[in-house]
Every structure is written in C-alpha cells, then in structure tokens.
Write a protein that binds this DNA or RNA. Structure first.
Length: 408
RNA sequence: GGACAGGUGGCUGAGCGGUCAAAAGCAGCAGACUGUAAAUCUGCCGGCCCUUGCGGUCUACGGAGGUUCGAAUCCUCCCCUGUCCA
C-alpha cells in the first residue's frame, strides 16, 4: 500500500512553484510555512487559533515526544492528531536537529545517536530505524529520516563525514520504513477492530463516554517519508548527497543544515544549487528556514515547504515581524503607542490591540503578551506565504519579488 | 525619658581601614534569537571627558566635624527609623 501523499504543481513562475500537497489529513497549499510545535504544541497558541490563522500543517519533534510523553502514549491516544486534537496535516522531524542543538548531550556513532536526556540525564539511543518506529507511532502525515546536522563553521571533512553518514542512515531508514509499513498497518487495523468490539461489548453508556473523550481510533495511514540532503556549504558534497538521497528514493526531499550561522548569500546559494538537483515533481522542503526574507528567497529558488521557530520564539521574546521590519515591542518608545503592531496587518490581534497594551503585557510578564505576539507573527508568516503563492499563481511573482526586495 | 538595633546607588541588601563608583538580586534600558534544553540569553545600568582602557575627572554609602598617607568602614556630636522598657 502506498501513502496518501500526492504532489501537484499548479503553476511555475521565475523558478518558484505553487502547488497542492495532498495528505491523509487534508491538502496543503504550497509553498507553505509550517509552524513549529516541537512538543506537540505550537507554544502559546491553541489548535483553534492555529486553524483560525490558516495554518495548514504543523511540525512536531521525534526526540522530544519520545522522551515526553513517550511515543507509545501518543499512539494510544490516537496518534498526534488525536492526542493534540489537530485534524490537519502534521510533519514530524526526526531528531536530527537535536544532534546539533544537544551536541553536548549526544554522541554520534555509525548506528545512531546516543543522547543523554536533557530532562533527567538518562541515556537514550536514536537510530535511523528507531526514528522511523517512533514516528510511525506518532502517526504524522510526513516523517523525516534521521540525519546528522552539523554546526557551522565545519571543516570539509566534518561536512563530508556527516553527509555520508546521513546517506547511510537514509538507506537504513528507507529499508526499515518499507519493512515496518505493512506490519504497522496490520497492527493498526487489528487495534481498531478490537476497539470497535470492546465498544460494542460495553454497551451504550461507555459508548457515550467514548464519544465524549474524543479519542479517535488510531490512524492507519502510513506517513510519507522524506529524505534529507546534507553536505554543509560545499556544493560538491551537496550534489553527492542529493544524488544518493534521490537514488534511495523518497516522497519528498529536504535540504537540511542551512541557516546555522552562515551568511545569507551562502544560504541562498547552497539552497538554490541543491534545490535545482532535486526532482521536479516532488516537494522540496528547506528545513529550519527562516526569516520572512528567507522564505521569499527560498520560494524563488524552487522551495515548497519551510518551517522555523522564529515567528513563535521571537514572539515570546517580544520581537514582532511587521511590514516595516522587526519591532522590539518591549521598547520604551511603544509605552504610549496606540497603533496596532503593524498598521498594515489584518490579523485579529492588530484589529483589536495596541502596541502600548501588548508592551505592557510583556513588561508585566503577562502570558497573554506572548500569545498575542505569537498570533500576530504566525499570521504575518502565513499571510506572507499566501501572498507569495498568489503572486506565483497570477504570474506576478517576479514583480512581487522586486517590490519586496526594494523594501518597505 | 531610657536600652538596644539600624540608616549604603530606583528598591532589597552585602561590604565594616586601602584592590570600592561600592557584591548580589530585583527594577530599568538596549540587543540577539532560523528542522525550539528558550515566556530564553547577552550587554549596559552615578555624571562628564576620551576611539580604546585594570583610563581621566567630579559627585556619592543620613548630616557635621575629627583620626589616618588613606574612611562606606574608626571616633565625637547631631538628625532620622524600628523594637523593647518607662
């Protein structure tokens, strides 16, 4: 059985693509921005609010959910969709980023990564196979292979070693994915049948309780598996990596290891070079990127999917994105500013609250401040992407780019 | 009226002869944040001067005197605050 993932390109314009990515939990309009909800929560906002913002797909993280609450618990609660009560698409990252971000707590070997839990110091092992199993239990729509993301700057030897290891891991992940897929689906089906039987035996009262608890039956659809291209800032390594990952064959291709400290021009250059190597007819995902500007530049280089913690983390730290650039909302100069965060913004926050009020919430450490800033920033990102997509569809992308690049 | 205990930078509060423009925390100001160990982290935080600095200078540890080469630190008197006794 194949997965539900189908990718359809509707329009191409000046290197950019606008399309539709069909998943078991709905269709995603691409190019898209995916809010990051590492621990099963896009920090500071509710799932209802995410829906209102028009988020079509969100991220979650293998490593973090494996540690807490544990992937088996998530599986029992109906997978991530049921657990989080998020009916739309979900992509899980493999934990490859944590190889870099938790470097001090991890040790990479040929077989996988030995982590010490950042929560309690306990030892854990994540292999490419294990990452597949955990993600199967989490039940997203798209899952990622385990890769090794290296820090910047890195020597060519380091980049090459990580790139080659990422390739070997990708192969193992793919093999394990194919092997596991059928048995996982069989198990899911039998679990569902058992659940139905139990429900039937327990009579009408428990049936009411079951429907009230809103725990859906486990999702049987197998997540699609995306491969990740590494190779640091070296174009030859990127080419080698892309060729190997494509040879293994995945439903989508990600570019990892960018925006880790290198210059903008380097990011764009490597992204462009790598994206051009990837299959035309498969989604391309630039992992962890980026600023509003990065998204536009990425789309212009043929990227379809992005994710980044920036809109959510910056929001919590009082930094908001506007059509006029970044704003440190905690700054004294906003203490008596009656304007919305961005007068040109149509979001629910900007329609209702002033800079002065939001600044006050931050200064007073009221959690509503973080929520309002997050709602605004996510709207800004998602709405920017809608505009970009519209520009591609209408054939005005090039003009759109030059207007945005000229600055506000 | 008497006995103790105290008065330190916006606040709390260390320091109790030199290395003190004075610890630390808070508050304040600014900056950073790119597949989230993050509602976090970093810097500044008496005035003036200089690009810089373990830099110069002025004003500062309740007030006024004094001891000393040198005082937030020791002495004298005064003012104020708290607690207790009358």
């Amino acid at each position: 059985m194949s997965t539900e993932l189908k990718f359809e390109i509707l329009s191409r314009h000046a290197g950019a693509r606008a399309g539709l990515l069909h998943t078991a939990h709905g269709t995603i309009e691409t190019p898209c921005f995916m809010p990051v909800g590492t621990a099963g929560s896009v920090k500071g906002v509710t799932q209802e609010q995410l829906q209102q913002l028009g988020a079509q797909i969100i991220l979650a993280n293998t490593y973090h959910l494996y540690l807490r609450p544990g992937h088996e618990a998530v599986r029992e609660m109906g997978g991530l969709h049921g657990f989080m009560s998020w009916p739309h698409p979900i992509l899980t990252d493999s934990g490859g980023y944590q190889v870099m971000s938790l470097k001090k707590l991890s040790r990479v070997t040929e077989d996988g990564v030995h982590f010490r839990s950042h929560l309690d110091g306990s030892p854990h092992f994540l292999s490419p196979e294990r990452a597949v199993e955990i993600q199967m239990a989490l039940g997203p729509d798209i899952m990622m292979t385990l890769d090794e993301c290296v820090e910047y700057p890195a020597s060519t030897e380091t980049m090459q070693r990580a790139m080659k290891l990422t390739g070997r891991w990708a192969r193992k992940a793919k093999e394990h994915y194919e092997k596991t897929r059928d048995s996982e689906e069989e198990k899911a089906v039998s679990r569902r049948q058992k659940a139905e039987r139990t429900e039937h035996d327990e009579g009408p009262q428990s049936e009411i309780q079951n429907s009230k608890s809103k725990i859906p039956t486990p999702e049987s659809r197998t997540p699609a598996l995306f491969g990740i291209v590494q190779g640091g800032m070296d174009k030859n390594l990127r080419r080698e990596s892309a060729e190997e990952i494509m040879e293994i064959g995945f439903e989508g291709y990600a570019i990892g290891g960018l925006s880790v400290g290198e210059s903008k021009s380097e990011t764009y250059d490597v992204a462009e070079h790598t994206a051009a190597l990837l299959p035309e007819d498969r989604p391309r995902y630039l992992m962890g990127v980026g600023t509003p500007e990065d998204l536009l530049e990425g789309v212009a280089r043929g990227i379809d999917m992005f994710d980044c913690v920036m809109p959510t983390r910056n929001a919590r730290n009082g930094s908001v994105f506007t059509s006029q650039g970044k704003l440190g909302i905690k700054n004294l100069r906003f203490a008596r500013d009656p304007l919305p965060l961005d007068p040109a913004c149509g979001c629910a926050v900007c329609r209702r609250y002033s800079r002065a009020y939001i600044r006050h919430l931050f200064i007073a450490r009221e959690m509503l401040g973080a929520t309002l800033a997050t709602l605004h920033n996510l709207y800004f990102y998602l709405d920017s992407m809608r505009e970009i997509r519209q520009a591609i569809l209408s054939g005005g992308f090039e003009k759109f780019c030059s207007r945005v690049r000229a600055g506000p």
